[in-house]
């Protein structure tokens, strides 16, 4: 079992739910990345998803697109993010997950990228434009290393496809809770609960819900049907406005509610 899954599993066996915030690397400058990781770790998050900005982020909503544009304007690249992570303090022990589109990985070179991830202690990868059919070469490169390839499952995935995706899953399964892109939303599809329950039954690894989760009420609602949640836009927006109290509040409310 890879480290990422172990950490989430131990969270679950303690009767807790996982809470994974997403941050955009380079938004606010790469020099604040490591201090943000430490800040989030001290709030008690389970793992941290680090987004790599991309020129054509087709799976991202407005908030994260804008954060990505700011990060690109700062000269942020996949290589520079990995270099920055390599310099983080020993105090940062929370598992780190990289979310990147595929092309920067191809430009880096799959083999070199995986070696670099291993070297800096990245524990998971989320690649939104790499469905299972196309993930062969990256999957093979990750077999013997402690980096999990986290698959996405969507509301539109039929049951036989879900079964196949989760059977290969490592770390956790990322349950996309809306048809659409990341961002703030008020309501979820009414079939969502049933979908999440079915997914949890099928999956041998933990199931975390993401996309469109922005309030502690939503965290509690979705947490009830999964092993935890990923919160992106709300965290990205709060960091951008430098509203650290809001982040602390969101994480603390969420984790305390989830524990109950």
């Amino acid at each position: 079992m890879k480290t990422l899954e172990k950490v989430i599993q131990s969270c679950i066996s303690n009767g807790e739910k996982a809470f994974v915030p997403y941050i955009m690397a380079g938004d606010g400058g790469l020099n604040v990345l490591n201090e943000r990781l430490l800040f989030l770790q001290e709030l008690g998050v389970t793992a941290i998803e680090i987004g790599i900005p991309f020129s054509d982020p087709v799976a991202d909503g407005e908030t994260i697109q804008q954060a990505g544009e700011r990060a690109l304007a700062n000269g942020t690249t996949l290589r520079k993010v990995l270099d920055t992570l390599a310099d983080r303090s020993d105090k940062v022990t929370v598992p780190l997950v990289i979310m990147t589109y595929l092309n920067p990985v191809l430009a880096f070179g799959i083999k070199e990228f995986v070696e670099r991830c291993v070297g800096v202690g990245v524990r998971g990868l989320i690649i939104p434009d790499l469905p299972m059919e196309e993930s062969g070469m990256l999957g093979e490169a990750l077999v013997d290393v402690d980096v999990a390839l986290i698959p996405l499952v969507s509301l539109t995935s039929p049951e036989d496809r879900i079964a196949e995706i989760v059977s290969r899953a490592q770390g956790f399964v990322y349950a996309v809770t809306v048809n659409g892109i990341t961002g703030v939303r008020n309501s979820y599809s009414e079939t969502l609960e049933a979908h999440l329950e079915r997914l949890k039954k099928l999956s041998p690894v933990p199931v975390l819900a993401g996309f469109g989760i922005s309030t502690s009420t939503q965290v509690v609602e979705l947490g009830a049907h999964t092993d935890g949640v990923i919160v992106g836009s709300a965290i990205v927006d709060a960091f951008h406005r430098d509203d650290l109290d809001l982040i602390a509040e969101l994480v603390q409310q969420a984790t305390s509610h989830i524990i109950l």
Binding site: L102, D129, E133, P151, L152, P158, N179, G180
Partner: peptide, 12 residues
């Protein structure tokens, strides 16, 4: 070629 798209589109 190939199909490098978000999972939501695979069924479509």
């Amino acid at each position: 070629g190939g199909q490098y798209v978000p999972e939501t589109l695979m069924t479509a």
